[in-house]
Design a protein around this nucleic acid. Sequence first.
DNA 1: CAAATAAGTCAACATGGCTGACATAAATTC
DNA 2: GAATTTATGTCAGCCATGTTGACTTATTTG
Lengths: 188, 188
Amino acid sequence: MADINSELLNRHQAPAEQRAGRPAAAPQSDAQLITFVELLFFAYRDFTREADAVLSEFGLGRAHHRVLHFVNRHPGLRVADVLDILKITKQSLARVLKQLVDEGWIVQKAGALDRRQRLLYASEKGKALSGRLDTLQMRRVAQALEAAGPGNDASVARFLFAMITEEERTLVEALLPGPVEATATHRK
Amino acid sequence: MADINSELLNRHQAPAEQRAGRPAAAPQSDAQLITFVELLFFAYRDFTREADAVLSEFGLGRAHHRVLHFVNRHPGLRVADVLDILKITKQSLARVLKQLVDEGWIVQKAGALDRRQRLLYASEKGKALSGRLDTLQMRRVAQALEAAGPGNDASVARFLFAMITEEERTLVEALLPGPVEATATHRK
DNA sequence: CAAATAAGTCAACATGGCTGACATAAATTC
DNA sequence: GAATTTATGTCAGCCATGTTGACTTATTTG
């Protein structure tokens, strides 16, 4: 892995303007947009790292984390809700959910109104683990928001929110702790 | 999936202040930080969707995309470089790289100085596919940057960059088309 | 009561990670 | 020049997590 840095440091690409026929009036050059594409990959790659390491101590994976997280944040979530949030199939969910229930991270209760429903709740143990993982990820995010600069939280939130497929945005907004526009603490 | 919206819309959680003993001076409330954690999940989930769909038309997956992308962007990349960028094992890479080479998306040339090296280049066909996928993802990013607000590009870039594990940042910066601080077109 | 719905389950398969062990060719070092 | 290190490839197998399709059970609803 020796000299990847030295090799690459002198390889910054030519400006997009001298590439395909794109007017200079474009809001972003291709090179700038590619920067964001690549940053998203790297950011997400590392975003999940610490949590994955903790999870593996308990014989759990990222899939378990996602289920536990949303169940913990939304007590009483139905199985169908989780499927809709994660966009995975019932069978994929079944595998990880079964383990989470068998090992006591999540408990199921029949719905009071509709007894076909299995409402999901994090157990004390589940809450503790979910909280621990949340702490790791919140710490990383907090640090990154600081780097973004004070007063820029809402911009970052709007960016991430707009990355979501349009049809999904109302569901996501309903799931979030609060409206996307209210993520700024320092300024509006 | 009927009533997830109505169920959830009234479930916004109590402010973090009335939770564990955290001073009010904290730069971000827990709820706000969780918002970013969740937004990252949803944003990335959808970020990869369109590209995955195109890739599957060609019998390729996300792993192929990542290799092809970085090889296309950095012609002459060595196998060891790709491993270091993607943080996967040689055997994982071998599987997808073999297919990319066998099917003519990527070509290998022995290094001129060190003939043990297999320098990787995207073929014309590979460049075309990579470009097509880049276009999809750049379009999505451009739209999201617009939503973030003009002049906020650099903030978003700094946020994403700071999400990367510290030790990896110099390598990533070397790979990007330009310095992270130069992502703003409208203002500094 | 019939039909629709919520959830669970079985079987099989694909993708993309992983480990460990070993092979080959070329470069480097002694 | 022989020995070692390095860059890459490869075999074999395992694991996690996604997929499809078909079918069951309990319960609610029309």
